[in-house]
Write a protein that binds this DNA or RNA. Sequence first.
DNA 1: GGTAGACCTGGACGC
DNA 2: GCGTCCAGGTCTACC
Length: 292
Amino acid sequence: MKIFLEAHPPFSLAPVVWSHGWAQLAPFATEDRSGKFSYVFHLSSGKTGEMTIHEIESGVSVEVDDSLSQSEVWEISQNVKWMLGLDQDLSEFYLAARNEPSLAHVEERRQGRILRSPTLFEDVIKTILTTNTLWAATIRMNKNVVDQFGSALAKDPSRHAFPNPEQLAMTSIEILRSSTRLGYRAPYILELAKRVASGDLDLEAYKTTDLPTPELRKHLLGIKGVGSYAAANLLMILGRYDYLPVDSWAMRMVSQEWYQGEPIGRAEVENAFERWGKWKGLAYWFWNWSSN
DNA sequence: GGTAGACCTGGACGC
DNA sequence: GCGTCCAGGTCTACC
């Protein structure tokens, strides 16, 4: 079965899929740089399956199993719309970017959307797994989480969906440390899974909340393992671009761009993009670094 | 509010 | 093969 979903123009699939590293993390799987990808899902009905997404003229086509019910198809459609930001209108950002040579490419390349997971729960865990480690270790830790706790795909049991909070909440810190190799992050991940599974924390409500961004940021910082970098990263995923995910790479890039390679701090990175206001995060994310 | 040290893993390197 | 060093953000204790 194929589901056709329209995107707010301009849209191109590849720039979304490769907007950051998420496409390299299970249960995403890509074959090439075209943007076509597959994702193993686990629906609220309990069904596990695979969807394959590729670009069509007006948006995307989502290929799924024929046996899905109407409500399951609706759930998948909603998930894909969120994952790819199909409804996002970035015309205001494009207008501002036209006068900046280092951002003049974004409209032509249809950049600006950032790939998301279907749930914020998955994105928070993935974000915590990116902190204080190398990218190769993030890929490994995430794969362990998916393979050890996610539901297996019937047609290919070597592939799994991302575990839901209930599945993850049943494990222990010891297993997350020794078997999943999450290190000091193990208690953070388990606490998060338990809070979401118990209903104490409604992460998915943050997708549509009217809370001002500084308030939303405070909520995110209240999650153990989420500091200023992770919070800014999650705000970007939520479509709030007024904070910068400043990490060591950002400080290196800004230093080389404007400070002749001198050591700088967080404040200098913030200052460099202050004039972009509510588009600060996107300007930083898609900046054409002269030294990159 | 700012700072120092601990947290943990795996890759790189020297022996 | 073994030991040491290092990179990477966040948390906690302390000032």
